[in-house]
Amino acid sequence: MAAQPSSIVDEPLEPADGVSTAEIPAEIHPDVALVERAKAGDSTAFEILIKQYERQIFRTALHITQNREDAEDITQDVFFKAFQKLEQFQGNSKFSTWLVRIAVNESLMRLRKRKTAKTVSMDQDVETDDGSIPRDFAEWRPNPEQNFSQSELAEILNKTIAGLPPGFRTVFTLRDIENMSTEETAEALGLSVPAVKSRLLRARLQLRERLSRYFRKGTDGARDAMRQITRQ
C-alpha cells in the first residue's frame, strides 16, 4: 500500500545512489531566509510567503475538493498550520512543496468529512487498468478548444477532470497544471517517483480519452457531446 502524506516535517530525501546528501552542495532557496525571519517573529516575511504561494495552494485545494468554499477554508488553514509548525520546516525540501503537502492532506481530509466522495485517498482506484489502455484513436481538429466559448470550454475541462479519482486528479494537477517536478510531486504526496509516473500516465490517458469526444474531427460529434453535458 502506498503511503499517504501524513507528516508535515520536511524529512531529508533518501540518497538515490548511496551518496550522502550532506556531501552535495545545495543552493539556498530565497524562501529559507524568509522562513527564518518569520520564525523570528517577522510578520512581513510571513506575509510575503503567503503572497507567493496563496494562489497555488488555492488552486490545488480547489482541484482536489472541487468546492470553492472548501478551497478557501483549506488555503487559510494551510498557511495557519504552516505558521504554527514553522519550527518543523528544516529546509530539506522547498517551502512550496512543504505547503502543497499540507494542502493535499487538508484537502483529502475535507473529502473524507464530506463523505459524498466515492474515493478519498491517494491510494484508491489506482490498481485498475481502466483508462490506462487507449481505445480512442480519432485525430483531433487543429486547435479544438477554439470551437467552444470560454465558458463551454471551462465546463468541459471541469467536468472531465472532476471525473478522475482524487489520486489521479492530484498528480495531474501538481505535475501538469502547477508544473511541479516529478520528484517534488512525489515528495508532496508521499509517493515514490515510479508511483507518480504511473498515476500521471493514467491521468493523462483518461483525460485524453474523455476529451476526445469533444475535440475529435467532425463538428457534429463535438456539439452533440456539448449538448449532453449541458443537459446533465
Binding site: 488555492f58 488552486r59 480547489l62 482541484h63 478551497a71 487507449p134 484513436f137 480519432a138 485525430e139 483531433w140 479544438p144 478548444e145 470550454l153 471551462a154 475541462l157 471541469n158 477532470i161 495531474f172 501538469d176 497544471i177 508544473n179 493523462r204 490517458l205 483525460l207 485524453r208 476529451l211 476526445s212 475535440f215
Partner: peptide, 19 residues
C-alpha cells in the same frame, strides 16, 4: 495519435487558467 492528443490534453489544461 495518442502522443498528439495527450500533448494537446496537457496544453489545453495548462492554458485554461482554471480556478
Amino acid at each position: 495519435v495518442v502522443v498528439d492528443t495527450t500533448r494537446k490534453t496537457i496544453e489545453v489544461y495548462r492554458g485554461s487558467r482554471m480556478y
